[in-house]
Nucleic acid binder design. Structure first.
Lengths: 364, 364
DNA sequence: TTGTAAGCGTTATCAG
DNA sequence: CTGATAACGCTTACAA
């Protein structure tokens, strides 16, 4: 028990062969006579040797068989997000033939001795989202010479990017609302930056999370003055909180809310109900993502369906290509607009009400 | 570009210090004078050195900062299962203070050069489920001297086990049905073994997946002859397929179905509707897990709520303890029975119908 | 088909 | 506080 673990040299000695021969028996890289193989295997089991130490092998070969998947948020949180989940699904799919393991990593520096983007033995990395924080680590990884792919976020030139037409897609939703006569519109946004806590987005805010910024731009392409309340995350409860704020000023309610995710939209719907507003008669609400939201029936969100799994698959393929020494190109996926039953014509009474100024009033 | 990547020795030489000193600058294990540190850091950045190679460090230290999470199934599939997701959530939670990365692994030998339970540089492993297949790898890992914790499954003595009172819990559901007068009951089961394809479970079947076996035992503690149709996985569509089979023989329909997961139950409900049966008037259906099932409204499953996240957290704590050289004990969590609106009194007409023999007839 | 030898890049130990 | 030395355990040209 307290004795040192057997090494391949021990096995070789026991079997009466050289270390290299023993190594070859395990790796199968070179033909070995059946007799020798048998002898080595026997010696191995006699010594309780279960195969090469991955750490040593990894050092020697320069490959670990591990691909890092870096999230900006707490890992547990990432699993709660259906979009991320679908993305991982696609990614795992695409990595399967390569057989590489996926190492889940958080961007935030971990306290202990643990694995981080910089300290983990990675062959490649997939960055999910790309806040400023992440961007730092990115430079380090790039410098380390590890192939990197970024999903949802910009990582600078030379880094393949799996994107989404966030701005254009969100614009579609906004246009849909405008076509239905909505003039007073508010946005329920995703977080503005890492560590953001709920609140109205100030005019001068520096929106560092790309998804948030791009979707907001899309909304404002149509409603330039739309006020935006940013939640602390993509959750129903956060949407509820955002919705309460948005509907708080009864005199100046928007007739439509553009939520930046389906989960937020679900929360906003609840907030509307709480405020005694009917959806879509009194207020129209759009989502984003096209996931199935639990317990939202009988509502079906008007939303933008994004190909989340395809994004993951594309990331996996890009990684595979780069690992094979090739180049990987950036791809931008397109969302599909889907009309549900949460949007309708703007209520006439409101849209002609004096004081309506084209957008929801922005609270101070 | 084509030049070799800088090593710590290069940096040391450039800075005019010894490699060990340079190493210490990066690890911070030993005090270094500010002057030398500055010199080393400067040399490093001049050479584009971004820190110790994790592979080498890992070899030398004997720790990789990586904990493997091994699933029996295709990784993408694992993400689709809300129970697994919640479990991972809890696990990530518990690992956070330790800072270790979670490496997602599949049990099946991968084709390529990729990471497996045996070839990945792991400090510890968490096995989720434990089929026979997995049990093999387990021996290897144990032999490798890596701390192991098993969630849902038996791994033999000496291996901490995070369990669930599957049998007892399922028995509760069965007793609930019996108390409501049900005598003809069928089971919609989870897969019998890895690679299982849908079908009735033969009497002599060797049920190697523990969860399936234990829950089946619980059901049969009350309904010894209940026929069981095992799905190929925990999905609504699989439940639908199972339900169709179970309700196929109109003359000999069960009045209740015990599904081994909520997702299966949801599918069975759909099958019942398809067959023109009302739930719960004509047929009662129980689930297992206590997750929220999409689009199941207005049904609320009668089910057994399991503390999935707690299981993950417990696994994480056990791993942490073992990594600290301590011992970790096994824990068994308890499910809570929750009555929904999918179970009711057995329909009288059927339960006294001639030919009713106390259980659903078992097809050949 | 098998053996020899030279690292892979770090870090622990211990002496200065 | 700094430096020399010796592993860590394996792989892979290359030689035999």
């Amino acid at each position: 028990m307290s004795t040192r673990r057997a090494t391949i040299s021990d096995v070789a000695r026991e079997a009466g062969v050289s270390p290299s021969t023993a190594s070859v028996v395990f790796s199968g890289k070179t033909p070995v006579s059946d007799a020798t193989r048998a002898r080595v295997l026997e010696a191995a089991s006699a010594l309780g040797y279960t195969g090469p130490d991955p750490r040593a092998a990894s050092l020697r070969r320069g490959r670990s068989g591990i691909v890092g998947v870096v999230f900006e948020e707490h890992l547990g949180t990432a699993f709660l997000d259906p979009v991320k989940t679908q993305m991982m699904d696609g990614l795992a799919d695409a990595m399967a033939p390569l057989g590489a393991g996926l190492l889940l990593l958080r961007d935030r520096e971990s306290v202990g001795t643990g694995a981080t983007l910089m300290t983990a033995p990675l062959d490649a990395a997939v960055l999910v989202g790309c806040s400023g924080l992440l961007r730092e680590s990115l430079d380090a990884v790039k410098a380390r010479g590890i192939p990197v792919v970024v999903v949802e976020g910009d990582a600078g030139v030379g880094i393949p990017r799996i994107g989404l037409d966030n701005r254009e897609a969100q614009r579609q939703a906004a246009r849909h609302l405008r076509a239905h006569g909505h003039t007073r519109v508010a946005v329920a946004a995703l977080p503005v930056r890492a560590g953001w806590t709920r609140g109205w987005i100030p005019d001068d805010a520096d929106v560092t999370i790309d998804v948030t910024r791009e979707r907001l731009q899309g909304a404002r392409d149509v409603y330039p003055d739309a006020a935006a309340y940013a939640a602390a995350g993509s959750f129903i409860d956060e949407g509820l909180a955002a919705g309460r704020e948005i509907f708080a000023d009864a005199a100046n309610r928007p007739t439509a809310v553009i939520a930046q995710s389906d989960l937020l939209a679900a929360g906003v719907i609840r907030a509307a109900e709480e405020a005694g507003l009917r959806v879509p008669e009194d207020v129209s609400i759009t989502g984003f993502d096209g996931i199935v939201v639990d317990g939202l029936a009988p509502y079906e969100l008007t939303t933008l369906v994004q190909p989340a799994a395809d994004k993951g698959r594309a990331a996996g393929l890009a990684v595979t290509a780069m690992l094979d020494g090739g180049e990987a190109a950036s791809i931008t996926f397109t969302c599909v607009f889907r009309k549900g039953n949460t949007t309708a014509e703007a209520p006439l009474a409101l849209s002609v009400e004096p004081g309506a100024n084209g957008t929801a009033a922005r609270p101070r």
